[in-house]
Amino acid sequence: MFNIFELEKKFGDLEVLKSISMYIEDGEVVCIIGPSGSGKSTFLRCLNLLEVPTNGKMYYNGTILDADLDSKKLRQEVGMVFQKFNLFPMFTVLKNITYAPINIKKMKKEVAEELAMDLLRKVGLADKANVYPSTLSGGQQQRVAIARALAMQPKMLLFDEPTSALDPELVGDVLEVMKQLAKDGMTMVVVTHEMGFARDVADRVVFMDKGYVVEEGKPEKIFNQPENQRTKEFLARVL
């Protein structure tokens, strides 16, 4: 689905990504782990062109991604869930979910609302359709945000530390929804600090540090027999 060659990203003089090459296959769940400041989030944001890479090549299903490309089209197929949810506070939960399908995909209102209700049932929040986001807990808001991303019927979802802003007791519900998505075959790239989730759900774990991919492989290999010294040190600290 994605093929990435020697991707670089600089902010002024600060080199955040230094030559990242990676592929992501259809239906694959890739978890990116690593210390903060390692460039995980920046890499994720390059995938839907929220950040435009300074150098390197990215192919999405064979088409090359660059600044000239219509990023709107790409983003309709590659959805994203943020650490801070970013729900629209002036809309109800239902309108948050239906707003893009109606306005971007030109879906009929009734169809969009039916889809939204299906998605809300899926994330366990069907009873919250008509409330405003501010009345929801963090975990509930994040599940609405996942439903909102799914409403565009994307081919792939990017998760940028989706549980990092949540109280510990709310993390489980969100991870449960993500596990279900993975089971349903959604292609997912997840930047996370939840090592348990990465171990259980990921098809592949990527360890990033200082702008490089240091090590990648099956979760069993990365967590049980890491080869690189930096991976070992990081895992020793977080596990």
């Binding site: 839907n48 929220l50 990023s71 709107k72 089209k73 983003r75 309709q76 959805g79 994203m80 943020f82 801070k84 970013n86 729900l87 629209f88 707003y99 893009a100 306005n103 971007i104 995909k105 909102r148 991303a149 565009m152």
Partner: peptide, 18 residues
């Protein structure tokens, strides 16, 4: 207004001015 609001709209497929 939080920058996240713009980004949330962008990732749903809205343009910058939308």
């Amino acid at each position: 207004v939080d920058k996240g609001q713009t980004e949330a709209a962008l990732v749903l497929g809205f343009g910058k001015y939308q």
